[in-house]
Simulated assay, not measured.
Amino acid sequence: MPRSRDGRYRSVLLGTLVGVLLVHNAKASTLEAINHTHWAINRFSVDGRSGLDIIGPYQGGGGGCCYSAPSRWQPGLTVRVDWETGASGVSELADEFPGFADRPKYFAWKQKVNAQKRQLSKVVPVPDYTGQKVCGLTVHFLPCDELQVTTSCYAFGSPEYPIKTPLHLPEPQSCPQ
């Protein structure tokens, strides 16, 4: 039975993706995140690839596709993380939500929420993963707009997981400039 036009396109697309991965000799896997701050991570991306989920304060999430680690780690390997922080859905601003009926109150509330959003970007070193299995990339969002990343296959909190930072970190009074 002949393939449908859509089936051919999917086969070509899948073949192209597999070919790209084989040429680069890399494994593609998900982008995950752990948020150690009291702010929501409204969105994030790694090297332009979306992490998908909003990540609430002191939570994990993500699930975006794909991070492809080079088959061999090399000194100087970095990723660019872009993200937006803002008030979380469980913040005091959520309690102030006036509903949609009173448009002026709604727009004033929305402006207050948007005023707390910040767009950030940072280039982060990828730790040496020589001799280890690579399972995507997990970004840790830390206070003072600091980041850590890992390619570890272990779950956050397990003894083998390389980043030992507690989930609930106190927010410092001030951040280094």
Rank of each mutant, 00 (worst) to 15 (best):
G48T: 10
Y58S: 03
V81M: 04
W83F: 08
I54P: 01
S71A: 14
V79W: 00
P57R: 10
S50G: 10
I55Y: 07
V79Y: 00
E84Q: 12
G89D: 14
G51E: 06
S88A: 12
G61R: 10
G62F: 04
G51I: 11
Q74M: 14
D47H: 03
G60L: 09
P70C: 07
V46L: 05
T78C: 11
S68I: 08
G51A: 10
V90T: 14
A40T: 08
I55V: 15
I54K: 06
G60A: 15
N42A: 01
I41M: 05
W83H: 04
G61P: 09
V79E: 01
N42C: 00
P75I: 15
A69E: 04
W73E: 06
I41A: 01
G48V: 07
R43P: 00
V46D: 03
L77Q: 14
I55C: 07
P57D: 03
F44A: 02
R72D: 14
R72V: 14
Q59K: 15
D82E: 15
G56F: 09
A40E: 13
D53E: 12
G60V: 10
Q59M: 15
N42H: 09
A87E: 02
T85D: 09
L77N: 10
T78R: 09
P75S: 15
V46M: 03
A69D: 03
G56L: 08
F44S: 03
P70N: 08
V90R: 11
E84P: 00
Q59E: 14
S88L: 00
F44E: 01
C66K: 05
A87V: 02
V46N: 00
A69H: 02
S71D: 11
Q59L: 14
P57E: 01
W83L: 05
E84F: 04
G89A: 06
E84V: 08
G64P: 09
S68M: 13
G63C: 12
R43Q: 06
D82M: 06
L52G: 02
V79D: 03
L77D: 09
D82H: 07
G62N: 07
G51D: 06
I55F: 10
G62C: 07
A69K: 02
C66L: 11
S88I: 00
G60D: 10
S88C: 07
F44D: 00
G64R: 05
T85K: 13
C65R: 10
R72C: 11
R43S: 01
R43L: 01
I41Q: 04
I41V: 15
L77Y: 13
V46K: 01
S71G: 12
S71E: 12
T85W: 05
T85N: 09
R49W: 11
V79R: 02
S88F: 01
V81Q: 02
T78I: 12
S88W: 04
C66Q: 04
G64S: 08
S68V: 11
G63F: 12
V81S: 03
P70R: 07
